[in-house]
């Protein structure tokens, strides 16, 4: 079977970065969540209050709590719940980071078509991260 050696190298490189980034996301989520539920960092919405709010639609929840949309939550990262949200958001960045990592090796091995796919996918993901498709 005509499988080139650099295919395996690039696949393993992607796997290594994916592994490290996923473990980082896991550790960050766990730490931020412990700071949140232990009360070490003050929450924007107290966990004790959530049982009366989590049955509401998102729209009504936002009305009742004044919670932010778009990128405005970044300003609230000194609160335990929004620090946890930031940790969770890291998972949405892992794929673009791993894709960018393999772009240069692909080009170095003359894989222009694969590199073009990687760049196109990164552009799509970057558009999503920017909030272009969030519609509010």
């Amino acid at each position: 079977m005509d499988v080139k050696p650099h295919d395996e190298h690039i696949q393993r490189l992607y796997a290594r970065w994916l592994d490290a980034a996923t473990k980082t996301g896991f550790a960050a989520s766990l730490c931020a969540f412990l700071l949140y539920v232990s009360g070490a960092l003050p929450p924007y919405v107290a966990p004790e209050r959530l049982p009366e709010l989590w049955g509401l639609s998102v729209g009504r929840f936002l009305e009742q709590t004044g919670a932010p949309t778009g990128w405005r939550w970044v300003a609230l990262m000194d609160h335990g719940d929004y620090l946890s949200l930031a940790a969770v958001a890291l998972f949405g960045l892992i794929t673009p980071v791993c894709y960018l990592r393999i772009a240069a090796p692909l080009l170095r091995h003359g894989e222009r078509l694969q590199a073009a796919l990687v760049i196109a996918q990164t552009v799509v993901l970057a558009a999503a991260v920017s909030g272009l498709f969030a519609g509010g």
Binding site: P68, G92, A127, A128
Partner: peptide
């Protein structure tokens, strides 16, 4: 990865 950001941005 792209769809997740829609939910994050919408709160």
């Amino acid at each position: 990865s792209s769809a997740a950001w829609v939910y994050i941005h919408r709160g």
